[in-house]
Nucleic acid binder design. Structure first.
Ligand code: SF4
Ligand code: SF4
Lengths: 168, 168
DNA sequence: TAGATCCGGATGTTTATTATCCGGAGTATG
DNA sequence: CATACTCCGGATAATAAACATCCGGATCTA
């Protein structure tokens, strides 16, 4: 059989969070081009670029044209929540889209009979809200702290070195 | 541009919740065949049948073969949560699937350097948990109550009549 | 001016979802 | 027991979404 597909978050979400976290540890005035960010994370450059543009449009990243340009955070990491990144890339539409199936079939009523979101709808919306609230409670600055705390020391050193080289 | 696609829950979820809610108001020993349920909701019968089978395997619905057979609830509506229905149809896998991109690229470390889910991962898992907890806090019996309370009276009467006819 | 970079539209590829069909097996009813 | 009705699940097809690439143009720095 195998229906089971599970609601899935776009891969771009993971990339976006990683990139934003990485840019959060850049020295002020530093910036990394899309190609470098893709190289660091081992993801397709042309496709990552799309997501970076989305983050840029959302006001999370600032883009700098020209030589030594690239992306940097558009505001302090303490003011960027994980939800901001998720919504910039994945949109703000709730996971549950009501197709109004109650209005179909033999017992359908005129549209006026259906005032507002029904009970089923409200349950799903409510779950969506707590999900978003949970993501909103964590900032990119928090992520940096966590990674610094329980990341592998050798990996952190290698990462720091790579960043220095990339900026040079 | 228009990347924005948004994490989306399968349409089958909506069907599954509606069907389960409908079956919750059936008289004991009553059952409705898949074709009738599809007719009532105005959805493709062959496809709905797939989802009904999933609900059946999950122990939410009981299936009765032969004439006057069909589906009914396998247990009291008070013991079926919305999350049960969602997970039966959509699976239990979290929306965020980590692709371990930290292990890729030029600063990758040996596998042993990556102990458990990192901070980013934990944030996403945590959000997933509150989402599921929210859905688990509502039972199908609650949905029935809500629909009975704020549903359109004429629609409820039409629905009740349709059910009587379908069972006859 | 030259080189680097972002921007966004157009396009192609791959994968997931949606949808249908059919043979097989189980069951109540007469 | 014969029959009509129903679920079951595998195979397959159609459609939509996600993933990925490319390129011309604009913008900026040095
Ligand atoms: S009853 Fe609720 S979930 Fe169902 S179609 Fe109407 S608004 Fe949507
Ligand atoms: S750092 Fe976290 S989110 Fe990123 S690849 Fe590793 S476990 Fe996944």
């Amino acid at each position: 059989m195998f229906i089971i597909r599970s609601m899935k978050l776009s891969d771009g979400i993971e990339w976006g969070i990683h990139v934003t976290t990485l840019l959060a540890v850049l020295p002020p005035e530093g910036a990394l081009p899309a190609a470098r960010l893709a190289e660091f994370h081992g993801v397709p450059a042309a496709y990552l670029a799309k997501h970076l543009q989305a983050l840029s449009r959302a006001g999370i990243l600032a883009s700098i044209h020209g030589p030594r340009g690239g992306y940097r955070l558009a505001k302090p990491a303490t003011e960027i929540t994980v939800l901001d990144v998720v919504e910039a890339i994945d949109g703000t539409e709730p996971a549950f889209r009501c197709n109004e199936i109650r209005r179909r079939g033999p017992t359908a009523q005129p549209a006026a009979a259906y005032p507002l979101p029904c009970g089923i709808h409200r349950v799903m919306v409510s779950a969506d809200l707590v999900w978003r609230a949970s993501l909103r409670s964590v900032t990119v600055a928090d992520l940096v702290t966590t990674v610094a705390n329980d990341g592998d020391p050798a990996g952190l050193v290698a990462g720091a070195k790579w960043i220095r080289d990339a900026l040079a």
